[in-house]
Amino acid sequence: MSSEVRNLPESTADRLPEAATTGAPSAGSARGRWAGVTAGVALCVVGAAVAMGIGRLVPAVNPMLIAIVAGALVSNLVAVPGWIKPGLDFSAKRLLRVGVALLGLQLMFSDVVGLGWGVIAVVVAIVALGIAGTLYLGKLLGLSWTQRVLIACGFSICGAAAVAATDGVVGAKEEELLTAVALVVVFGTLMIPAIPLLSGAFGLTDSQAGMWAGGSIHEVAQVVAAGGMIGGGALAVATVVKLARVLMLAPVMAYLGARQRRAAQGAAEERTQPPLVPLFVIGFLACVALRSSGLLPQAALDLARLAQTALLTTAMFALGLGVRVGLLRAVGPRPFVLAAASTVWVAGIALVGTVLVA
Results as ranks from 00 to 15, higher is better:
Gly82Trp: 02
Val352Thr: 10
Arg31Thr: 13
Ala307Leu: 14
Ala67Trp: 03
Leu150Met: 08
Tyr136Gly: 10
Pro251Asp: 05
Ala254Thr: 11
Val185Gly: 05
Ala289His: 08
Arg291Ser: 07
Phe284Arg: 03
Val277Gly: 05
Val61Asp: 06
Ala350Phe: 10
Ala152Ile: 07
Ala162Leu: 06
Ser3Met: 13
Val246Gln: 05
Gly154Arg: 01
Gly154Lys: 00
Gln260Met: 14
Phe280Met: 05
Gly118Ile: 01
Ser11Gln: 14
Leu285Asn: 03
Met64Ile: 13
Gln260Val: 11
Ala254Lys: 01
Val357Thr: 08
Val170Asn: 04
Arg56Gln: 14
Pro25Arg: 09
Ala254His: 03
Ile230Trp: 04
Gly266Tyr: 11
Val357Ile: 12
Gly154Glu: 00
Pro297Val: 10
Ile84Cys: 03
Leu102Trp: 02
Tyr255Lys: 12
Val37Met: 07
Ile151His: 05
Pro17Leu: 09
Val163Phe: 01
Ala39Gly: 05
Ser292Trp: 07
Val323Ile: 15
Ala162Asn: 04
Val181Trp: 00
Gly257Asp: 06
Leu197Ile: 11
Ala194Ser: 12
Val37Thr: 05
Val127Ile: 05
Glu4Trp: 12
Ala263Tyr: 12
Arg259Ser: 13
Ala244Cys: 08
Gly320Val: 04
Leu103Glu: 03
Ile151Ala: 02
Ser2Lys: 12
Leu16Gln: 14
Ser75Glu: 09
Thr166Ser: 09
Ala125Asp: 06
Arg271Lys: 14
Val355Pro: 07
Ala35Ser: 11
Gly266Gln: 12
Asn62Asp: 15
Ala263Val: 12
Thr179Met: 11
Arg262Asp: 13
Ala101Met: 09
Val69Ile: 15
Ala225His: 05
Val281Met: 07
Ala341Phe: 04
Ala358Val: 07
Ile126Val: 15
Val119Gln: 06
Gly283Ala: 06
Ala307Asn: 10
Thr309Pro: 06
Val355Cys: 08
Glu18Pro: 15
Tyr136Val: 14
Leu301Asp: 06
Ala315Arg: 02
Ala125Phe: 04
Pro59Gly: 11
Gly154His: 00
Leu249Ala: 10
Ser216Pro: 13
Ala180Arg: 01
Ala201His: 12
